[in-house]
Each structure stands twice: as C-alpha cells, then as structure tokens.
C-alpha cells in the first residue's frame, strides 16, 4: 500500500507540474503578443464612430488599468496566479461583466458528458472487438471491421463531422445537426429534457465514435495478435483452458495495460477532437465557446477556456494513472 501512495504522490506532483506549465504557457502566449487587447478594443470602438483624442486617451488608460497591463510582465504573471487560485479569471468581454469562469463552467458539463460517454464507448467496444479480432483472425466480420477502421481512423475529426452534417443534415435530414437540446424544452431534470439532450448528442457522439473507435480496435488487434504467440497462451490452450477464459483473463487483460497508458497519453488529442466536433455541431460546450471567444477577441475567456481545459485533461490523465494498479499488479508491488 505504501508503494501505491508513493506512486500516487509522484503522479500528483506531475499533475501540478502539468497544470503550472500549461497555464503559464497560455498566460505568456497571450501576454507576449505584439497586439495588445487594449489596442484591439480601441480599434473596434473607434472604428464605428469618431472620438476626440482625449476620450481615446482616457479610454486607453482605463482599459490598461482594467486589464492590469500597467505593471511589468512578471508582476502581471504573479497577479494572474494570485487571482487564479481564488477562482477569479476576470470578466468576460463576450458577456460583460459575467466572470469568464462562469461561462466556462456552464459549457464544461456539456463537453465533459460528450467526452466521457464517447471515450467509454470507444475504449470498451474498440478494445473488446480488437481483442476478438486478434484472437479469431479469420473471422470475416472482424476482418471487415478492421478495413473500415483503417479507412476511418486517419481522417481528421472535422472532416468526419462535416460529412455527418452533409449526410444527416442535407441528404437525409433525420437528426438534429445543431445545438445541445430542442429549443422548446425547458432546462430542468425532466425526462423530456434528458431525452432531448440525448437526441441532440447523437450526431456529435456518432462522429466521435467513428473516428475514435478504430484507434483502440487496431491497437488492441496488434497487441493481441502478438500476445497469442506467447508460450503461456499455447500452454493454456494445451492444458485445456476454455477459449473465452484464455481470451479475456489471459490475453485481453494483459493487453489492457498498454491500452490504458495509451488512453492517458492521447487524452489531450481526443479532447482537441471533441472541441472541434462541438464547433461543427454548435454544441454548447467548451469548443464552441472557445471559437466564439476568439472571433470576438475576448482574451479572458480564451485564457480561461485554455486553462480549464489544461486542468481538466491533466486531472483526467491523473485519474487514469491511478486506475493503473487495478489492471497491473506490478505497479502495486514496486
């Protein structure tokens, strides 16, 4: 048990390091830019009508102070962390003066739900089918599935989502292609609302499954087709252990460990894919918020979404790492 705590502590340190490095990077990228947010706001304001130079100067001074840009960069950085740990990420410009964090928190559950549901579907079904395909290598259905997976897996999320919109939005319009729930449904925990949410999530989820499931299927198939040549599998077969037992208890269980590591390592990538798909379907999650904030030039919301995304992904990786010992007894002992 002590070994496990050490392992968890190491991972926890890593979690903090990732959050710190990622958020610092986000801060410096957004603050070292040659284009200051103050100038871009003044540009937008004065573009519509003419103001006196004094008014512009006063506005510039006010904005500089509001953004906290009147102090050196390192001071801004410290101030940023000081406010960050208290959960203050500044007001959004999209919906001034709503805090940027609140906008992010409204969007987060949508992304979280979509992401969790599709990752679980992809990982479980992809791995089980892949395991079967690696073990029963002559099965026609699994062979066909492998070819489809090879065809779909390398296509970027955006293209698949786009094709889904064309298919189910224009050619055969049976599924809703935009939004998170029907307009005439009230947001509450009623069966009607939940059904509507599920109905609207179908296409985004389907796109994510189509792109994502192949990775796990192909990875698992390759792993299992190597494991079945190991001596211990041959021995188990000769000893008359039932085939399903060999497959699930001896083969798939061993192959699960690298697949779990690989899930932790690709989570950032999967997250990126999800926010793109949200944008295509105007799903009310982080992706849509991020793109809207960029188009509106809203620095605080962009920074807030990036920071929360970094924390969320790092935490998810941390949790997956903590699950490791369940599958891999060696981690428990070492």
């Amino acid at each position: 048990m002590k070994a496990y705590f050490l392992f968890a502590l190491k991972r926890l340190l890593q979690l903090f390091a990732v959050c710190f490095a990622g958020i610092s990077a986000a801060f410096f990228i957004s603050h070292l830019s040659p284009i200051s947010p103050v100038d871009s706001i003044i540009g937008r304001v004065s573009g519509r009508s003419t103001y006196s130079p004094e008014a512009i100067r006063a506005l510039r001074a006010t904005m500089t102070e509001l953004f906290g840009l009147d102090v050196p960069l390192w001071q801004q950085y410290l101030n940023f962390w000081g406010r960050f740990v208290t959960g203050d990420l500044g007001p959004s410009l999209l919906a001034f003066p709503t805090p940027a964090l609140r906008l992010v928190m409204i969007a987060l559950p949508w992304t979280f739900g979509l992401l969790t549901a599709t990752i679980i579907i992809n990982w479980l079904i992809g791995n089980i089918l892949g395991g079967l395909a690696g073990y029963y290598q002559n099965n026609r259905f699994l062979k066909a599935f492998g070819i489809v997976a090879i065809g779909l897996q390398p296509i970027p999320h955006y293209i698949v989502a786009f094709l889904m919109v064309i298919l189910f939005g224009f050619l055969w319009p049976i599924l809703p292609i935009s939004g998170g729930f029907a307009m005439n449904v009230r947001v509450a925990w009623t069966p009607e609302f939940v059904l509507s949410v599920l109905h609207y999530a179908l296409l985004p989820a389907l796109s994510l499954v189509l792109v994502g499931i192949g990775t796990w299927f192909l990875g698992m198939r390759a792993l299992v087709s190597n494991i079945v040549t190991e001596d211990y599998v041959t021995y188990a077969e000769l000893a008359g252990v039932k085939r399903p037992t060999i497959l699930f208890a001896y083969v798939i269980r061993n192959a699960m460990i690298p697949q779990l590591t690989s899930l932790a390592m690709t989570l950032g990538l999967i997250f990126s894919g999800t926010i793109i798909i949200e944008q295509v379907f105007s799903y009310p999650g982080l992706g849509t918020l991020l793109v809207r904030a960029v188009n509106e030039g809203d620095t605080t919301v962009v920074l807030a979404v990036s920071s929360i995304a970094i924390i969320a992904v790092a935490t998810a990786i941390f949790i997956i790492d903590l699950l490791h010992p369940i599958f891999d007894p060696r981690v428990r002992v070492e």
Binding site: V18, A21, G22, G268, L269, I275, V294
Partner: peptide
Amino acid sequence: FFADIFVAIPIFPILILFYFVLR
C-alpha cells in the same frame, strides 16, 4: 518529465491561442 508535461497539454487550445495573438 518534460515529455510527460508536453503530452498532457491539449494542443488545440494552445494553437488557437497562438492564432489569437499572431492573427
């Protein structure tokens, strides 16, 4: 250690941030 940090950072928001400042 650095590799693990880079793996865990979701790149898409970072790229968007780069676009956001560089246009």
